[in-house]
Computed example of a mutant assay.
Amino acid sequence: MPTYDASTLLPLCAGLTLLGLIGSWFAWRRRGLAAGTRGVAWSLLPVSLYMTGLLKVLWEVVRSVVSWAAHLIFSPTVWAGVALFGVSVVLYVVSGVARGRSPKEKAQKEKAQKKPASPAGQLTTTGPAPASATTAKAAKPSKGKAKQQESSEFDEIEDILKRHGIN
């Protein structure tokens, strides 16, 4: 890639600005003030970049990115690194799946399922089972009953609001 040369880029930037200003004049005549003004704004950029020194910075950035991309594409070492990264990701995912299927967890789940529920008040290894544990399970209302209770509560609230004149 060619190097940055200020003496070559000044006429190039001035020419781009001049062409842009001519195009902006035609845009102003055909499409109006807004299009012409926008064209002038874009036309002044090349000379302003040159005068502030940002054109040199932009040139170096583009040159560095192109060099990096060429190195990335044509280097076997880089592609070996990309392959190792892929293998690493696959191994990490496989380890997560294997972790969920560990034999210790299966054995613990089977023991928990085989363990019989102790009746209320009976002594166990952790102490007596609370009597409220079995009655709480039996006293749970079904979903249909819960919805009926909620709707009846809302009906009561609506009646109270109507009595007070609030709709």
Rank of each mutant, 00 (worst) to 15 (best):
Y92S: 07
P46T: 03
A146T: 13
R30Q: 10
A6H: 11
D5F: 08
P119C: 01
R163H: 05
A129I: 12
P116Y: 10
L54E: 08
Q148I: 05
S24L: 04
V61A: 14
E110T: 02
A107V: 00
T37C: 11
G121D: 05
S64L: 15
P46S: 04
R163W: 07
T125W: 10
V65F: 10
A35H: 00
L12F: 10
T3P: 08
A70P: 14
A131H: 15
E158C: 08
A27K: 02
G144Y: 05
L91R: 03
R38E: 12
P76D: 07
K143V: 12
S48Q: 12
L58Q: 01
A83F: 12
V65C: 13
T3F: 10
L21T: 01
P116D: 02
E158V: 15
K109R: 14
D155Q: 01
S7C: 08
A14F: 00
Q108L: 10
A34I: 14
P11Q: 15
S88F: 14
L58I: 04
Q113W: 01
T135R: 07
A83S: 15
I160T: 07
T134L: 13
V47T: 03
V57L: 06
G20N: 06
V93S: 11
A35I: 08
S95A: 12
G15M: 14
K109E: 06
T126D: 11
G86W: 13
D155E: 08
A138V: 08
V57Y: 03
A136M: 14
S132K: 07
P46L: 02
I22M: 05
A41Q: 03
A120F: 15
S102P: 01
G121H: 05
A129C: 07
W79T: 07
K147G: 02
T125H: 13
D5S: 04
K56W: 13
L72S: 12
W68K: 15
T37S: 14
L16R: 03
N167P: 14
Q148F: 01
A98F: 15
V40S: 04
I73G: 07
C13R: 02
G96V: 10
G15A: 11
L12R: 01
V94L: 13
T124F: 09
F154L: 13
T3A: 14
F74I: 00
Q113F: 07
A14R: 13
V66Q: 07
V61M: 09
L12I: 12
T124C: 01
T125C: 02
W59E: 00
Y92A: 06
L58H: 03
A136C: 04
F154K: 11
K137N: 09
S118F: 11
K114S: 08
L10Q: 04
G81S: 12
L55M: 12
R30K: 14
F85Q: 06
G96Q: 12
V65Y: 15
H164V: 11
L21W: 03
A131G: 13
T126R: 08
G23H: 03
V87E: 00
A112S: 08
L72H: 10
G100M: 00
G144I: 06
G127K: 03
P119N: 03
G23D: 05
K162H: 15
T77Q: 14
D5H: 05
T17V: 08
